[in-house]
Computed example of a mutant assay.
Amino acid sequence: MERGVLKYLKPLLALLLLLCLVRMPYGFYELVRFASMTGFSVIAYRYYKEMKEELAITFAALALLFQPFIKIALGRTMWNVVDIAVAILLIILWTKDNRHKNS
């Protein structure tokens, strides 16, 4: 049972990732890295608790990719591709979760 902010964590993270496509101050990207690492860790844990191992591993890997401590230099273009792909994944999973709960 998701409550409060956790219910909207996936679309919120998707929005933050899509905002990275626009030129923003460097601090914004750092904030997104921290928020993504934290959010993906929470999502990975929730999928682990639901015994959805593949999704748990996927989001744990995303948490490691986005972590801000040891930065992975992919270049702006590759990060944009990653941001878009992850945002799409988040929206698909959020939509699927909501549709499943409402039926």
Rank of each mutant, 00 (worst) to 15 (best):
V5I: 15
R46L: 10
L9Y: 00
S41P: 00
Y26D: 13
R23S: 15
L15F: 12
Y48F: 11
F28Q: 04
R46S: 13
L15Q: 11
Y45H: 07
G4W: 03
L55C: 11
A14C: 06
Y48L: 15
G27I: 07
L6Q: 08
L13K: 01
F28C: 02
A56D: 08
L6E: 15
E30W: 14
R23N: 14
Y26L: 15
T38K: 07
L55R: 14
M37E: 09
S41D: 04
T58D: 12
L6D: 12
L31V: 11
E54D: 11
A60N: 07
S41V: 03
L13E: 01
L16T: 01
E30C: 03
S36H: 00
V32S: 02
I57A: 11
Y48C: 08
R33F: 05
G27K: 08
L12N: 12
L55F: 10
L12K: 10
L16M: 15
L21V: 05
L13N: 00
G4L: 09
A61V: 08
M51K: 14
R23P: 10
Y45W: 11
Y8H: 14
A44Y: 00
A14V: 05
F34I: 08
Y45M: 10
K52V: 08
S36D: 03
L31S: 13
G4F: 03
Y48S: 15
K7N: 11
L18Q: 04
L17Y: 01
Y29W: 09
L6T: 04
K10Q: 09
L6Y: 12
V32M: 06
K7S: 13
M51L: 12
K10N: 03
E30G: 08
A35G: 05
Y48V: 04
L13I: 15
T38Q: 08
Y47Q: 14
L19W: 10
T38M: 14
F28E: 01
L6R: 14
M51N: 09
M37N: 06
L17P: 01
V22Q: 10
R3P: 05
A44S: 12
E53Y: 05
V5G: 06
R33E: 04
M37S: 10
A14Y: 01
A35H: 04
E54F: 13
A56F: 08
Y29K: 05
V5L: 13
F34S: 07
S36K: 01
T58Q: 12
A61T: 11
R23Y: 11
F59Y: 13
S36E: 00
A60V: 05
Y8C: 09
Y29N: 11
S41C: 07
L19F: 14
E30Y: 10
L9N: 01
A61Y: 06
M51Q: 10
I57M: 09
A56I: 11
P11R: 00
L17E: 00
V42F: 08
K10C: 02
V22F: 11
L9F: 03
A14P: 00
I57V: 09
Y29C: 03
L15S: 13
A56R: 02
M37T: 14
R33I: 06
R46I: 11
E50K: 14
K49N: 07
V42D: 01
P11H: 03
M37W: 10
L15E: 06
P25F: 02
Y26T: 08
E50F: 08
T58L: 15
I57C: 09
K7V: 10
G27S: 07
F40I: 00
Y45I: 11
K10F: 02
L18I: 06
L18K: 03
C20E: 01
F34W: 15
E30Q: 10
C20D: 02
L21E: 07
R33L: 05
